[in-house]
Design a protein around this nucleic acid. Sequence first.
DNA 1: GTGAAAGCGCTAACAC
DNA 2: GTGTTAGCGCTTTCAC
Lengths: 331, 331
Amino acid sequence: MNWTGGKRPTISQVAAQAGVARSTVSRAFSQPERLTRETVARVLEVAKQLGYTPNPVAQALSTGRSRNIALVVPDVANPFFPPLIRAAQRKAEEYDLCVFLGDSDEKPEREDQLLERFASQVDGVVLVSSRLSDTQIWAYAQRMPLVLINRDIDNMLRVLIDSAPGMEDAVTHLAELGHRHLAYVSGPATSWSNAQRRTAFRNAARRQGLEVSSISANRSTYESGRKSAERVVASGATACVAFDDLLAQGILAGLADLSVAVPEQISVVGCDDVLGSTTSPALTTISNHCVAAGEVAISLLVDNFGGSPAVDVRHVLKTHLVIRNSTAARK
Amino acid sequence: MNWTGGKRPTISQVAAQAGVARSTVSRAFSQPERLTRETVARVLEVAKQLGYTPNPVAQALSTGRSRNIALVVPDVANPFFPPLIRAAQRKAEEYDLCVFLGDSDEKPEREDQLLERFASQVDGVVLVSSRLSDTQIWAYAQRMPLVLINRDIDNMLRVLIDSAPGMEDAVTHLAELGHRHLAYVSGPATSWSNAQRRTAFRNAARRQGLEVSSISANRSTYESGRKSAERVVASGATACVAFDDLLAQGILAGLADLSVAVPEQISVVGCDDVLGSTTSPALTTISNHCVAAGEVAISLLVDNFGGSPAVDVRHVLKTHLVIRNSTAARK
DNA sequence: GTGAAAGCGCTAACAC
DNA sequence: GTGTTAGCGCTTTCAC
């Protein structure tokens, strides 16, 4: 005996057993208000007793809506994503939606593959920090509702985490502590967030009249940050802001390896606030509401089911600085 | 204009355009060997030109197989899971399977809900650290292929991370460092892994003739660990083994708060090895191959598609100790 | 090797 | 209010 053997009762069985038409059974589940109380009760009773449950695949084929959505991220293991995924999943559940998860491993081709595979079986998709080109994304958006997190393309649904306010706070904070030379350690080159953060950093530093250095770490990993520590020191900056917490954490470790004290000799600021105070010293970081981003994205998506493509929504989430122990006055 | 408007070409359109029957188009995709080279070529050509792609929902309804699976975890944000999820997702892709992700938030009811929702639209499911009762799990296993990770139930497909070898190493390591009194800080009460680890800990300690204390932290979180630090100190133990790395990390922080030096005054051992050396001091921990667990689970699942329920497979992954800087000789 | 036709399980007009 | 009847897009016998 195997599972493929059709054991599950179908709508017809329930109909027969309850002495009604299949459509009536269907209605008993989807629009009970159009039926007599008694009919509904009887049908539901029989359904229950038979262990009947509507088959979502059949429903999907018939209605064209699957009640499934997809969530695609560049790297599940990057600590920024799990809270977002979790929040999105939870929110989706509120709308009775199941969510497919895709991990693109930061590769555009894989992201494309995943989307192609999902496209024909979901009601919509949310792309987090997509690595695809504007054109590719736009093409998918023509085929189905699509919302972007941390990617800013006109005439699309997007929720953006605006690093500017938090970055402004961070730079000001550092300036007030007496730092005159700051370094920015950048993350993935293709990341919208990275570009956004770097720009915000530069602007803020300029306004404060500070000298800036730019260091690129490419991948956003602990190791990559660790390796950047040396260049941070070499830059001559007395404080640095990293693209994200993971990188900052690595820098912390790298500096420790070099026997450079944080925050006494160099101050370090992260971005995302996903590590809490688990680093040592506890990281001063730019908080970014990744949970809210996940939730808003789902709501946005649902609100646009059955809508039309090319609606322009730009939901911006502000950021702010969380001061912990990795920043201090310049010595 | 909205997306629900059927824009995608169907098999019929391709058939008409190519001048063949729908069944032929179907075969061109699924069993081209039964068709003439020319026919296949022509059909595929037309399909391509029309942008036709088989509709997975229709295929699922017709064949009874959806090529989708589900992965359910207690908490996406717990660092143990992301690497596993990632590995599973990747492996699933190799088999051309899409994966639904469910987060039960450690709650049996939610896990049950998720499974109920997934059950009728997937070819199988893998449950990671399930919080469901044996009976419930068994019932689901009757309805579809189901593999368990870190849960040991007879006559089911399971992949288990056996903490015993690593735990043995850890306790021996601690004993060799001169520690005579060890504490175990336990995690979720309903967790199979926790029970397994605690038992392994006790057995190893007994063999070494060591005194043991047991401290329960309930939830496996950084904060929970932090709060347990005090009790670790109070227990009089000079070394402790935590249920997992997250808890250990919290204990590290809590100990620091209490000005208890690690490893000088107290040694701390974690479990999972998912934090790398990102803690301070770098955590000595029991490594557990969560990536392999994810991969094996998917393979096991796929191997059992179309098989029968009640097959007994017990794939055990060994563990070993990774020594870093959070353990040292007793002073 | 290819076609015709009967479903897969459900929904959605359209009748009555 | 409830039943009838077409499909939704594909697969799969069974013929030829």
